[in-house]
C-alpha cells in the first residue's frame, strides 16, 4: 500500500517585523520595516503507512504544531511537498478536512454554551454522517469513554477530563482515516489518561486509523507507539522504532543495592556511583563492558546485601539525554 501521509523537504518560515530597542528604535520600526525570518520547520521528510500510530516528539518550539497545521491544511508550507491521503491539504482544505480528525489538548472544538450531545449533532450535520452510522459510533463512544453522566451538561461546566473525552468522541464521529492528536493528555489525571489511551488504541487497531500523536508525556508514547519521529529545532533527528532507540541509547543500566550496614564508599569495578544514601547505593554501568551477574557476584563478595535490583532506562531519560546532547548515530559512551 502507498503511504497515506508523505512530506518531502517540507519547510515553513515565519516572517516577523524586527523590533529595535528603545524609543528611537520604535520610531524607526514605524517607518522602515526590517524583517526577521524564523525557520519553524526545516526540510522535514516523512512517510506514514496506513494504520500506523506514530509518536511525534520534540521539545517546546521544535516545530511539531507547525507540522501538524500544515498537514491539516490551515498553514501553507514555504517550500517542499505534502500529501495526505492523495490530497495536497492547503489546496483542498475542505476535502482534506473530511479525511482527518483533530484533537488539541489545549483548545476544544466543542461548542461552549451547548450540552455536549448537541455539539455531536452539529458535527453530524457538518460532516453529513449517515444517521445510522452516527448512532452506532455515538453509542460506542459513550460506552467506551463513559460519557453518559454528562452528555446533557453544557460544555463550559465539564471538568477537563470530561471535556477531553468529549473532544475525542467529536474528532472520531465521522470515521476519519487520519487523526492528529496534539498533546491530548495534558493536565489529565491517571484514570482519565488511561481511558484516553485505551480509546486511542481502539481507534488505531480496530478501525485501522492512522494516528500522529504529539505529546510531552512519553508514557503515552511508550504505551501506544512502535515508531517515533524526533524533531528538534525544526529538523527530524530520529525516525525509527522505540525499541531501536532504547537499544542504542540504553547501553547503561543502573544497579541498586541496599546494604545491611551503610558504607562511606562501596566501590565496585567498572561502575560509577550515582548516589549513596544511608546504605541505598545506585551504580551506573555499561552493560557491554560488564555483565550484571558479575557485578552482583562481586557485590555479594565485598558487602553484606539486603536487596538487589537492576533498572532499565525509560524512554523519558533517553529522550532527555538526546535533547541535551543531541542525537548521534553511534552515541559515545560517557
Amino acid at each position: 500500500m502507498p503511504p497515506i501521509i508523505r512530506t518531502h523537504d517540507l519547510r515553513k518560515t515565519f516572517r516577523s517585523p524586527k523590533r529595535r530597542p528603545g524609543v528611537s528604535g520604535a520610531l524607526r520600526t514605524l517607518f522602515s520595516r526590517a524583517y526577521e525570518e524564523k525557520v519553524a520547520v526545516r526540510d522535514v521528510t516523512m512517510e506514514l503507512e496506513p494504520g500506523e500510530l506514530v509518536g511525534y516528539i520534540g521539545p517546546n518550539g521544535a516545530g511539531k504544531s507547525t507540522t501538524i497545521k500544515m498537514l491539516t491544511g490551515i498553514l501553507v508550507p514555504t517550500s517542499g511537498t505534502i500529501e495526505v491521503a492523495g490530497l495536497v491539504p492547503h489546496e483542498r482544505r475542505n476535502d482534506n478536512a473530511r479525511n482527518i480528525g483533530v484533537v488539541f489538548g489545549q483548545r476544544s472544538q466543542l461548542y461552549w454554551d451547548l450540552p455536549l450531545v448537541e455539539s455531536f449533532e452539529l458535527l453530524r450535520a457538518i460532516y453529513s454522517i449517515p444517521k445510522d452510522r452516527y448512532r452506532e459510533n455515538l453509542q460506542r463512544f459513550i460506552e467506551m469513554l463513559e460519557m453518559e453522566p454528562f452528555l446533557r451538561t453544557p460544555v463550559r461546566q465539564l471538568s477537563l477530563g470530561q471535556r477531553m473525552r468529549g473532544d475525542f468522541a467529536a474528532a472520531m464521529l465521522h470515521n476519519p482515516r487520519i487523526v492528529y492528536l496534539d498533546e491530548p493528555t495534558i493536565g489529565l489525571d491517571v484514570v482519565a489518561k488511561e481511558a484516553i489511551r485505551e480509546f486511542v488504541r481502539h481507534i488505531n487497531q480496530d478501525r485501522g486509523t492512522t494516528i500522529i500523536l504529539t505529546t510531552h508525556d512519553l508514557a503515552d508514547v511508550e504505551r501506544l507507539c512502535r515508531r517515533i519521529i524526533l524533531i528538534d529545532k525544526g529538523t527530524i533527528i530520529y525516525d525509527g522504532t522505540v525499541d531501536h532507540i532504547k537499544e542504542q541509547y540504553g547501553t547503561h543500566r543502573t544497579l541498586v543495592l541496599t546494604l545491611t550496614e551503610p558504607h562511606p564508599n562501596p566501590v565496585l569495578e567498572e561502575t560509577e556511583i550515582e548516589s549513596n544514601d544511608r546504605g541505598l547505593v545506585r551504580y551506573r554501568f555499561d552493560r557491554r563492558r560488564v555483565r550484571p551477574d558479575q557485578l552482583i557476584r562481586e557485590a555479594t563478595e565485598r558487602y553484606e546485601l539486603r536487596d538487589v535490583s537492576i533498572e532499565e532506562p525509560d524512554l523519558e531519560s533517553i529522550i532527555r539525554r538526546i535533547y541535551v546532547e543531541g542525537y548521534e548515530q553511534e552515541p559515545v559512551n560517557s
Partner: peptide
C-alpha cells in the same frame, strides 16, 4: 482565543 483554527479544519 485562536479557535478560528479549529473552524478552518472543518469542511465548511
Amino acid at each position: 482565543e485562536g479557535t478560528i483554527a479549529t473552524d478552518l479544519m472543518k469542511p465548511i
